[in-house]
Write a protein that binds this DNA or RNA. Structure first.
Lengths: 171, 171
DNA sequence: TTTACTGCAAATATTTTGCAATATC
DNA sequence: GATATTGCAAAATATTTGCAGTAAA
């Protein structure tokens, strides 16, 4: 085993996420490797979305070296264990996030930032919703638009163009 | 120009989709090439989702040869013109579809088939919905689950396993 | 005639895979 | 000790790009 006291502590902790992962590994005859816990441990510290690249860099920033293949492999397991979800928003590379309570994703098409918002009305609507000849497992709502920061910047740019036009007209 | 009477007819037709595309091309100083109309023409004949690969094969099935780069390029233009949308459903490759009325996507996680359903209640909900510090442009709702065909198959498989277990027990 | 577009081949980006070394059970 | 897992490098996949020839305006 690659030794790392922090990760060993995490792996043997009573953290419900660790327990869930253990159950998944055990029930599938998979092994409890240090790499898997190091990755899970890092993911637990991330709020929001991350790419594979970012995840690996964070892990290595912790001073733990894992190969790209292992990151992919573990992320795959976590998805299978229903602990992680993969999202591909329009025009962006795949991003992952821990599965928590259902929420809506607001994606700014200008800066690419993704914000999660809870929407109890929508959740209630979906809970009640039944589709013909289809058994729902889970769902994702992606809302694309412009965040307030980008809206402000765009407004400023437009104003600047307008000002310039005005100036040119006067000449 | 690569000549093709069918495509020339289509390009000079009064089809609203053609007109919309023409407007987009003209307003962006882009050229009206036969390839672009051949691709648009083929897309018009597709109901539902398609991949780049499938699209190119359909076009070539029509006896019109286009390069992969041109397919990508034109699809990009059509997305920019808000005539086409790109979707990446969990675990599948990118698929495209014409922009029509808003609808929900039901994705079978077993066979991968995607079905569109109109949902006026949901559409009304989204029309009324405003998000804090966010200006909505458009949205996508992806619902994952099992279609009835796959549900039936799975049920049969489970029954077969059960029968086999029963049989083994009797020995 | 000017320059945008196409097609090709090469480059990139992302993810997957084969395999030898290694760690888990 | 048996075998699942890791890490590496190579392969596969999907998409983008540079460039020379071609076509649209």
């Amino acid at each position: 085993m690659k030794t790392d006291p922090n990760i060993e502590d995490f792996a043997s902790s009573n953290n419900p996420v660790v327990r869930k992962f253990n159950e998944y590994l055990d029930s599938h005859g998979l092994r409890r490797t240090t790499e898997r816990y190091a990755i899970l441990n890092r993911i637990m510290g991330i709020n929001g979305h991350f790419t594979i690249e970012e995840l690996q860099q964070l892990i290595e920033g912790d001073g733990f070296r894992v190969s790209r293949s292992t990151v992919y492999n573990t992320v795959e397991l976590l998805m299978d264990a229903r602990m992680l979800r993969r999202h591909v928003f329009e025009g962006m590379q795949a991003q992952y996030e821990r599965i928590t309570l259902p929420h809506t994703h607001l994606i700014c098409t200008t800066c690419g930032k993704v914000k999660e918002v809870r929407d109890t009305n929508f959740a209630a609507f979906m809970n009640a919703r039944r589709f013909n000849a289809f058994n729902t497992d889970h769902y994702s709502l992606y809302v694309y638009g412009t965040c307030s920061t980008c809206a402000r910047k765009l407004k400023r740019t437009r104003q600047a163009v307008k000002d310039k036009d005005e100036k040119n007209k006067k000449r």
